[in-house]
Write a protein that binds this DNA or RNA. Structure first.
Lengths: 150, 150
DNA sequence: TGTTGACCCTCCAATGATGGGAAGGTGCAG
DNA sequence: CTGCACCTTCCCATCATTGGAGGGTCAACA
């Protein structure tokens, strides 16, 4: 199986297949005499595992841990569960942040008449509120970036 | 006002103040003879606007549009509202994606006994399910990355 | 056999928002 | 005058991902 077929079989782009290999997430693929990468069914299964974990919002480092557990026949399921639940908590935290943003914006938009007049509470709200979100005691954590499957 | 004070006054890091200027999000600050950037209260107000929009998850390009509207005394509030509601829809889309991930992961974790035995439905779920999320007819959009204020 | 087109290779660069650090200038207080 | 806090620019790293250039391989077809 060449890399293009592997890409179709797993839903991971050719670019990312090479990238995952480069960063050591997966073991380097075998090579044909031509230099082409060759993928076995076992490789494909592992890559599918990777893609699914990625679809669930796991970061590459976390996927590496999951892969380790996946391949370790003697792992404890508690370890896997802990990792999964940690991730759930992280996702829930993001969701809370999203909810806060949505709530604030909807609140602002609700008070905007939305016609041709220039007066707009959204803009003045953005200009003058002490916090973008009105909830008191809100703590600011360092901004982080993340990716989401669509 | 020097850049450090401006940073404290707005909650935007010194690095980002320079970055916003570099990418043209805000007009270059005036300079003292020393070359130091000098910020007026007007600048500070605009930067606070920027920070609040950022806290609400707007991307820099969208913030640029908001700034244009903010500074355009003849804007129609409908334009602002449309932009805000567009953004709300985007945030809601992200939240749906998060919900899907959380649901799938919780479902998997629920069936994991989480003890010292190696058998773990989370891993086999990741290995064998057709889709990471069981919902049928799910469409895949191109993955995008974004940042969230914490 | 030669050509064509689809595929593959590596290397480099960009994205977006942010932080880190080096090397050097400025400003103020002691 | 010294020291320290602050400022400047410039370059690099992050994370996951895409794009492209420049060139090799393979299979089919005339």
């Amino acid at each position: 199986m060449n890399i293009g077929e592997a890409s179709k079989a797993t839903g991971i782009s050719v670019k990312m297949l090479r990238y995952y290999e480069e960063i050591g997430l997966v073991r380097p693929a075998l090579r044909a005499y031509s230099g082409y990468r060759v993928y076995s069914e076992k490789n494909i299964a592992m890559l599918r595992f990777v893609r699914r974990a990625r679809d669930l919002g796991f970061q590459v480092k976390q996927i590496a841990s999951l892969l380790d557990l996946w391949q370790d026949g003697s792992r404890a399921s508690a370890d896997v569960k802990a990792l999964a639940l940690d991730h759930v908590r992280e996702l829930e935290q993001r969701r809370r942040e999203l909810d806060e943003m949505i709530g604030t914006l909807q609140h602002l938009a609700l008070h905007c008449h939305g016609d041709s007049r220039p007066d707009c509470p959204i803009l003045t709200g953005l200009s003058t509120e002490d916090e973008a979100t009105p909830k008191p005691g809100r703590k600011k954590a360092p901004r982080r970036s993340f990716a989401v499957a669509g």
